[in-house]
Simulated scan of single mutants.
Amino acid sequence: MLSRRAKLLYWMSRYLERSNFTSRLLITTSELQLDLSLEDEISWKPLLTVTNLNKDYIKLNKKYSEKKTIEYFILNKSNLSSIFNSLNLSQQNSLVIRDILPEQSIIKLNDLILKFNKNIKTRKNKKNYIKILNEVIQGSQSFMYSTDMEMQRNIEYQFLRLGRFIERTDMMIRILQSQSLRSKQHKKGYEYLTLEWINILKSISAFQAYRQYSKQDITVSDIINFFLKADIFPRSISWNLNQIERALYRISKKNDLIKKIKYLNKKVEKFNIKNDDIDSLLLFLEKTLKEISELSYNIEKKYFFFKLKIKK
């Protein structure tokens, strides 16, 4: 398979997954602010911080605002991770590799982007933005379902999966980081803290799965361990690392990156948060995110970097 086409598949999948999880983050943060009557800065600064966008946002807006932050993540063209940019980049990549993708997948992706571009022209208020975000979640999931049902399990499919699960792992860590930072900043009691983490579960459709996974009383540390270690839940860190390992193995059985994935997964399994120690959790998440970034770079270097041979 050509390196360029593999890269386009990989990044198309990553951009689409990013739009999905960014939408979930925005909806959850908005609901938390409403439920707990949090100030704009406490609600939105953690999200901007963990996505490394806080400085850029402040330059543009000077102060924190729910409406401005949601607009920044949905529409801002200077924000390379905005949903607008993520969807458009995903579509641009798909145009080159449309012969690889199932016809229905292309249709679903185009429908999602057409609907998104139409809806962002409507009157801008919170209700319309939440509607747009829900449609992005549904549309991106529809595309993923189509590829899972219709693509052959060949090397092209493995690069698609690799991009999806690298991005999903990255975004899940950022979700945990943003909530951990928020929990440190406000002075709500433990009951409110637990409610916050329950809302995070609901934001990724994980509450029912969590209750099946854990039979004990709901605690913050138990929810965090579920996010990290539930290897049968398809959004936990451990499960996603297992999927990355499988995709890499099917691309190439002799793969030095697999050892790094296994090592990282063991570190996740061994980590235990004690007494809801948010500081130790944040430190662990920061280190894990750094290792995921290094893994992403090594994937790029191994499969997508190439040098032109010039004859002298």
Rank of each mutant, 00 (worst) to 15 (best):
residue 194 T to K: 15
residue 194 T to H: 04
residue 195 L to T: 08
residue 195 L to P: 04
residue 195 L to I: 11
residue 195 L to N: 11
residue 195 L to W: 01
residue 196 E to H: 03
residue 196 E to S: 15
residue 197 W to A: 06
residue 197 W to N: 08
residue 197 W to H: 08
residue 197 W to I: 13
residue 198 I to T: 09
residue 198 I to R: 14
residue 199 N to V: 00
residue 200 I to Q: 00
residue 200 I to A: 07
residue 201 L to Y: 10
residue 201 L to G: 11
residue 201 L to K: 07
residue 201 L to S: 09
residue 201 L to F: 12
residue 202 K to F: 07
residue 202 K to V: 09
residue 203 S to Y: 09
residue 204 I to A: 14
residue 204 I to G: 02
residue 204 I to Q: 13
residue 205 S to K: 14
residue 205 S to P: 06
residue 205 S to L: 11
residue 205 S to N: 13
residue 205 S to R: 09
residue 206 A to M: 00
residue 207 F to C: 00
residue 207 F to L: 15
residue 207 F to W: 04
residue 207 F to G: 04
residue 208 Q to E: 11
residue 209 A to E: 04
residue 209 A to R: 03
residue 209 A to K: 07
residue 210 Y to E: 02
residue 212 Q to F: 15
residue 213 Y to E: 11
residue 213 Y to Q: 05
residue 214 S to M: 00
residue 215 K to F: 12
residue 215 K to A: 14
residue 215 K to R: 14
residue 215 K to C: 03
residue 216 Q to I: 04
residue 216 Q to A: 07
residue 217 D to I: 09
residue 217 D to R: 11
residue 217 D to W: 07
residue 217 D to Y: 08
residue 218 I to P: 04
residue 219 T to W: 02
residue 219 T to S: 03
residue 220 V to D: 11
residue 221 S to R: 09
residue 221 S to N: 15
residue 221 S to M: 12
residue 221 S to C: 13
residue 222 D to T: 07
residue 222 D to S: 14
residue 223 I to L: 10
residue 223 I to D: 06
residue 223 I to N: 04
residue 223 I to G: 04
residue 223 I to W: 10
residue 225 N to A: 13
residue 225 N to Y: 12
residue 225 N to D: 15
residue 225 N to C: 11
residue 227 F to N: 02
residue 228 L to A: 10
residue 229 K to G: 05
residue 229 K to C: 09
residue 229 K to M: 05
residue 230 A to Q: 10
residue 231 D to Q: 03
residue 231 D to F: 02
residue 231 D to I: 03
residue 231 D to L: 00
residue 231 D to N: 04
residue 232 I to H: 13
residue 232 I to R: 09
residue 232 I to K: 14
residue 232 I to D: 11
residue 233 F to K: 05
residue 233 F to R: 04
residue 233 F to N: 12
residue 233 F to P: 07
residue 233 F to A: 11
residue 234 P to E: 01
residue 234 P to W: 05
residue 234 P to N: 08
residue 236 S to V: 06
residue 236 S to F: 05
residue 237 I to L: 13
residue 237 I to A: 07
residue 238 S to L: 04
residue 238 S to D: 07
residue 241 L to T: 01
residue 242 N to Q: 11
residue 243 Q to M: 15
residue 243 Q to S: 08
residue 243 Q to H: 11
residue 244 I to K: 00
residue 244 I to C: 01
residue 245 E to L: 06
residue 245 E to A: 10
residue 245 E to T: 00
residue 245 E to K: 06
residue 246 R to I: 08
residue 246 R to L: 08
residue 247 A to E: 02
residue 247 A to K: 00
residue 247 A to H: 01
residue 248 L to C: 01
residue 248 L to H: 03
residue 248 L to Y: 00
residue 249 Y to I: 01
residue 249 Y to M: 03
residue 250 R to P: 01
residue 251 I to D: 01
residue 251 I to E: 01
residue 252 S to T: 10
residue 252 S to A: 12
residue 252 S to P: 02
residue 253 K to E: 12
residue 254 K to V: 04
residue 255 N to F: 00
residue 255 N to I: 00
residue 255 N to V: 00
residue 256 D to L: 11
residue 258 I to D: 03
residue 259 K to L: 06
residue 259 K to N: 14
residue 259 K to F: 12
residue 259 K to S: 12
residue 260 K to C: 05
residue 260 K to F: 05
residue 261 I to L: 02
residue 262 K to L: 08
residue 262 K to W: 03
residue 262 K to E: 10
residue 262 K to G: 03
residue 263 Y to N: 15
residue 263 Y to I: 12
residue 263 Y to A: 13
residue 263 Y to C: 10
residue 263 Y to Q: 14
residue 263 Y to V: 10
